[in-house]
Design a protein around this nucleic acid. Structure first.
Lengths: 146, 146
DNA sequence: CCAAACTGTAACCATTATAGTTGCAAATCG
DNA sequence: CGATTTGCAACTATAATGGTTACAGTTTGG
């Protein structure tokens, strides 16, 4: 199975927050851009807040803002905030420990899966929210030119 | 969400086939090591066969064998055989195209997701079934020594 | 001090995917 | 021909996702 769309939505949220700079953005505003319900956005915001990436103010004139400079927020931070657990799954039921393969394959798989996951995370660690916003803006410029 | 356990099971299957060398292994034998039902194993075998990684003989004395040298089968081959679709998901519903972020974020995300997925696949491409079997055997040796 | 504008969170639903299971037709071998 | 094996379809239980409704709490400002 694929990863959930929470990661895509979370990056979208943070890109919007980076775009509006210091003004807090409401979940309703962001839901309008993401094309979903404000509750879904607030669920994502809850995970981002727990990870220390955003701050939120309730009440009139409230909303969410980035907790730090978007240049200091990498997509790995975002990924870790919203995707729990390991990327790969081991056997649904543990294999039969009698026999060389069944008894040791999970150890080997853990190692292999860890390496593959680390390579993916390294790429995410090299991309910041600022870069995403710049890329989005650049795309918008190209579209206008056409 | 995490990836399914099919990948783990598929690697397990191929490792067993590499271990028994040329003798065909039945789905029941492999199910015994994997600790699942033979039908589940045959479902995985179906995907591996479609990808050209194993061959199968029905009937008495039948079973499955590797279609080529296990040194020539990488974990990326296995991954592609059993995990369909992209690793990351975009938005569940397409975002609102009016607005710079909503209108362009998916293009940016496609690019980022592609890079991250490629890095993961590169690691898998560097590991063969032979290496997995060797690692499993090495683990077994260490356990005996303890 | 109250109403309006926000938030957080729980509850429920429909949809989807997985893994397990059962059942049966087809192929092969002796 | 019978035993062994496969392939595949169908059904189930379980779990996760995303959407939606509902409601209580916080803040601001008239």
């Amino acid at each position: 199975m694929s990863l959930s769309s929470r990661f895509a939505v979370a990056v979208h949220v943070l890109t919007l927050l980076a775009q509006v700079e210091d003004r807090p953005a409401t979940s309703e505003y962001m839901a309008g851009s993401i094309n979903t319900d404000p509750v879904v956005v607030r669920r994502i915001l809850g995970a981002l807040r727990k990870a220390g990436l955003v701050t939120t103010q309730p009440g009139v004139g409230g909303g969410s803002s980035l907790a730090r400079d978007p240049e200091q927020i990498t997509l790995l931070d975002v990924y870790r905030a919203v995707e729990k657990g390991r990327l790969f799954s081991l056997h649904h039921r543990p294999p039969n420990p009698h026999g060389v393969v069944g008894g040791n394959i999970q150890t080997t798989l853990e190692s292999v899966f860890g390496e593959a996951e680390a390579a993916m995370e390294e790429v995410l660690a090299g991309i910041t929210v600022t870069q995403v916003l710049q890329d989005v803006v650049a795309c918008a410029g190209q579209v206008v030119e056409q």
